[in-house]
Amino acid sequence: MATRHTIEVTVGAFMALGFLALFFLAMQISNLSLDSTAEGYRLTARFANVGSIKVRAPVTVAGVRVGRVESLSFDKTTYEAVVTLRIDAGIDTLPEDTFANVFTSGLLGEQYIGLEPGGSQDYLRDGDEIVHTQSALVLEQMIGQFLFKKAGESG
């Protein structure tokens, strides 16, 4: 009887250890708690060029992540990219004239959407559109413009 009991105890300990490892993987490594915030509200923003923004890219205000990119689509009449942002529910005081930029973290890093709050007293609500946007800086275009300007100066 004692051995059977020992087996049950060790199996229980093993399964607890396994689930603990799973919990560790879920929480510490993939940080499930941050991503599973299903609540929150949606904003849209139109960009002439979103660069390499991807779904789930972070949305930040002052460098702090306040949401994620939920979807990307293309408006075939205006030829603009329409980005849907999901902002965390607690961040409900973004002014209406908030400015949305596509930034790159570092020279080679991933792109993200940075919001710069404006001065308006009215706040953005679910479904609103961010009017002021700044497209992604495309390195090739910048180099092209720089060379073109240089050529103009010397010629």
Partner: peptide, 18 residues
């Protein structure tokens, strides 16, 4: 080490592994 890991590893990765 931890924050980059948490930012880049999705829970889907963990689920796929399981």
């Amino acid at each position: 080490f931890w924050s980059q890991m948490q930012a880049k590893v999705d829970f889907d990765d963990v689920m796929d592994g399981i």
